[in-house]
Design a protein around this nucleic acid. Structure first.
Length: 426
DNA sequence: TCTGGGGTCCTAGGACCC
DNA sequence: TCTGGGGTCCTAGGACCC
């Protein structure tokens, strides 16, 4: 059996942890740059706050009902996420937990009987809540897709289910599928949902389950669709992934706080993003063979309508795959000059690393002391920055003024990762 | 007269996820 | 004034090979 453990309104839950007066009150968390709403509590949902809706549009509602609003605080969420995952690994065994996202993990459960599954799920839920203060919902079923279905129902009916739904009989599965609209199935996005309803009269997960694999191959994205049908029918084909699989692409991209029109600011931003991307690269002991950068122009008003900002990109194939921040920055900066146009305003930029290979020189190269030096330097930079949970050491090309930095006006303190922001009780 | 069959690798782009 | 960031997987089609 597979379980999916999902934190309830995770980012909001993290904020509430340090502001218990917000319990049972509506709370929302905004995306980077305070652009849109990426987490909301049930109370906020009931007031009509749209998920992923733009902040400025929801502002009247937020003010009217005095909804507590936070900019995202990834230091805090990252740390609490780690605690939740670590708790699961301790209880269920390291190799049975697959972290799927910052607030979700799949857990491989042995073939227990119903009673044992119940006990295990209960125990998992209460322990996570006791140890970390974060509330979770758990869905259990024979496959990942069905576990997702169960989890959705658990979250929808928190009171009745106590946030745990177990689907392990034919009837319970069929019933759950019948109560799941097609657009809420894991793997069915907006496009497919439309198509399924209009062309094939498929309205629920149950309707979809009754389709053939041949049909899915033709109409639902080929092998992806076939997998989905199998999973809905209880055949586990989406396997648990090894925790250690490396990323094949690493990106760091950001909107600017306000539009930027000078080359130097963009280069500073790109240098900073490159540092961040290089850290991610080193964390998985990889090196990148290709670096690409892109910029997006600010949209322009054009006869009363807004025209989408143009996007331009450029890439370089590096002579040798590397994970050294300085080498990557050196490759990235000229690319920006290539795509930058004087006089234009830009709202976003980013760096992408690909052609990712294992960094075979990770131990340092005995015969090339220069290479060794940089590795030790990078390791030191990473260690210092990680232990301080902040960029204490950085490259000068990243700049110090940061005219382009994103807006984060409502961020809470980094309670758990910074001594000077720790919560005080008086 | 008349132009196979099988394969690889790469890129762009679409669809999805949280 | 004003809509995030970071990924994954898959397919189609072109270039190229024997």
């Amino acid at each position: 059996m597979k379980a999916i453990v999902d934190c309830n309104s995770f980012y909001c839950g993290c904020e509430r942890l340090f502001k218990p007066d917000l319990n049972h009150k509506p709370v929302i968390v905004l995306s980077n740059n305070d652009g849109c709403i990426i987490s909301r509590t049930d109370e906020a949902k009931r007031l009509g706050v749209e998920m992923a809706g733009p902040y400025f549009k929801a502002k009247p509602l937020i003010e009217k009902f005095n909804i507590a609003t936070f900019s995202s605080n990834y230091h805090l969420y990252g740390d609490l996420s780690w605690r939740v995952m670590e708790t699961m690994r301790m209880l269920m065994g390291k190799n049975n937990v697959e972290v799927y996202s910052v607030d979700e993990a799949f857990v491989d459960l042995p073939e227990f009987n119903t009673e044992k599954i119940n006990i295990a799920s209960e125990n998992l839920k209460t322990t996570i809540e006791q140890w970390t203060g974060i509330r979770v919902s758990i869905g259990v079923a024979p496959t990942k897709v069905l576990a997702k279905v169960a989890n959705r129902l658990a979250k929808k009916n928190k009171q009745a289910t106590n946030c745990i739904v177990i689907l392990n009989t034919e009837e319970s599965i069929a019933d759950a599928l019948y109560n799941t609209p097609i657009g809420d199935v894991w793997g069915i996005g907006r496009q497919y949902a439309e198509k399924l309803k209009e062309e094939f009269a498929v309205f629920t997960a149950l309707d979809l389950r009754n389709k053939t694999e041949y049909w899915a191959k033709k109409n639902l994205g080929g092998v992806t669709g076939v997998r989905l049908i199998k999973e809905l029918n209880g055949e586990a084909v989406i396997v648990m992934k090894d925790e250690l699989t490396e990323k094949k692409m690493i990106a760091t991209t950001r909107m600017f706080g306000s539009a930027v029109n000078n080359l130097k600011d963009i280069q500073e931003a790109i240098a900073t993003y490159t540092s961040r991307a290089a850290e991610k690269l080193r964390r998985q002991n990889s090196a990148a063979g290709i670096i690409s950068v892109f910029v997006v122009q600010k949209e322009k008003k054009f006869n009363e309508t807004f025209r989408h900002g143009m996007s331009r990109s450029a890439y370089t194939i590096l002579p040798i795959a590397t994970s050294a921040t300085n080498e990557l920055i050196k490759a990235a900066l000229p690319l920006i000059e290539k795509i930058f146009t004087n006089g234009e305003f830009y709202k976003k930029a980013g760096v992408m690393l690909s052609g990712i290979v294992p960094d075979i020189n990770i131990q340092g190269n005995l015969f090339n002391p220069k290479d060794n030096d940089y590795k030790q330097l990078m390791m030191m930079v990473d260690n210092v920055n990680f232990s301080m949970r902040d960029d204490v050491l950085k490259f000068a090309s990243g700049g110090t003024k940061k005219n382009w930095k994103m807006r984060q006006e409502l961020r809470s303190p980094r309670y758990t990762t910074r001594w000077d922001e720790i919560k005080t009780v008086s």
